[in-house]
């Protein structure tokens, strides 16, 4: 079991290393460099040369990568080209805002997804399932910005009860943020619930048609107990991992949702940085998001292991 945990840790580290390589070296391999990308058409030979010297672009790639990674590990994410401020400073409060959005959506969305998924799975191909599944399919299919725009049309324009875009400053206290996050959270929740409930449903159906559930029924175990004791623990176990994956995947959606509502989070920062071609900021945000994903996955794996006797008793 310890071996397994150690393996999982090692995998996480390797994953992050590969990613950092892709994020850093990948950019180096693409034509042009940070300086030309940033300065674009305004570039003059002198301005390019000075920016290159400033960024240390004249040194070998590997050396810069090691420095960059070392700094990042110490919590120093470098300096933004466009704003001339440390990236850490830019990210700080915005991270809080993004987490506020994501966690709220998670706390509402996950239980909802589990409940709806289980209901749909248990009523497979009957009315409740058909309704839940169809709505889920539509919500999951629609682009986030379309869902968001529909919601704005409904709740900010037709019935103006909520703000259409965020109107407070980036560093505003959480209390002031609250009314502004309602629509973004609802949008995010929709997408998340739609994806996850489909997955929970499939798992529940698989388990309900398994030999052991059928056997429990033929043992005369009451239906409630069959579901709660025999089926659900087995159905929900594999969803832990998938949930972690989907949550990370939704971060992509979060970027677009923040942009739609002009919400001052990591996403809008990222978009701005891409517009400015401010590559250090882009790299930092990506590394941050990827680390979050890897940690989440590691957590999910460890949790699954604690709950799953099959993995727990694995020797090797």
């Amino acid at each position: 079991m310890l071996k397994y945990i150690a393996r999982r840790f090692l995998f996480s580290v390797v994953t992050l290393l590969i990613l950092s390589l892709v994020v850093f070296i990948g950019v180096e391999l693409l034509p042009g460099d940070l300086a030309t990308a940033f300065l674009g058409r305004e570039a003059t030979p002198t301005s390019l040369a000075s920016l290159r010297a400033e960024l240390g672009l004249d040194r070998p790639v590997l050396e810069r990568y090691v420095n960059w990674l070392g700094d990042a590990l110490h919590g120093d994410l470098g300096v933004s080209l466009a704003r001339n401020r440390p990236v850490n400073e830019l990210i700080g409060v915005r991270m809080r805002n993004t987490l506020l959005l994501g966690l709220t959506a998670g706390f509402i969305g996950l239980p909802l997804a589990l409940a709806l998924g289980v209901i749909a799975g248990l009523t497979r191909d009957r009315k409740p399932d058909i309704w839940i599944s169809t709505i889920a399919l539509v919500l999951m299919t629609l682009p986030e910005f379309v869902t968001a725009t529909f919601l704005i049309l409904l709740f900010a324009i037709t019935w103006p009860i909520l703000p259409a875009v965020t109107i407070v400053s980036t560093g505003a206290p959480i209390k002031e943020m609250l009314p502004n996050i309602v629509l973004p959270v609802v949008t995010l929740t929709f997408v998340m619930v739609a994806h996850n409930l489909r997955m929970v449903r499939t798992n529940v159906i698989d388990v309900m048609t398994s030999d052991y559930v059928q056997m429990a029924i033929l043992e005369g175990v009451p239906y409630r107990r069959v579901v709660l004791r025999h089926a659900l623990p087995n159905a929900l176990l594999p969803t832990i991992n998938l949930l972690a994956m989907y949550i990370a995947w939704l971060v992509g959606g979060l970027v677009i949702i923040e942009q739609v509502f002009n919400y001052p989070g990591i996403g809008t920062l990222m978009i701005q940085a891409v517009h400015d071609r401010d590559i250090p900021v882009v790299q930092s945000v990506i590394l941050l998001v990827a680390s979050a994903y890897v940690l989440l996955n590691l957590g999910a794996d460890l949790l699954t292991m604690v709950l799953n006797p099959r993995l727990r008793s694995m020797r090797g």
Binding site: T15, L19, V22, V23, G26, V27, L30, A248, W249, L250, V251, G252, G253, V255, I256, M270, I271, V274, V282, Q283, V285, I286, V289, A290, Y293, V294, N297
Partner: peptide
């Protein structure tokens, strides 16, 4: 592990 949108934005 990298949400696809982020990869696109990086590129």
């Amino acid at each position: 592990a990298l949400p696809s949108l982020f990869l696109y934005l990086l590129v």
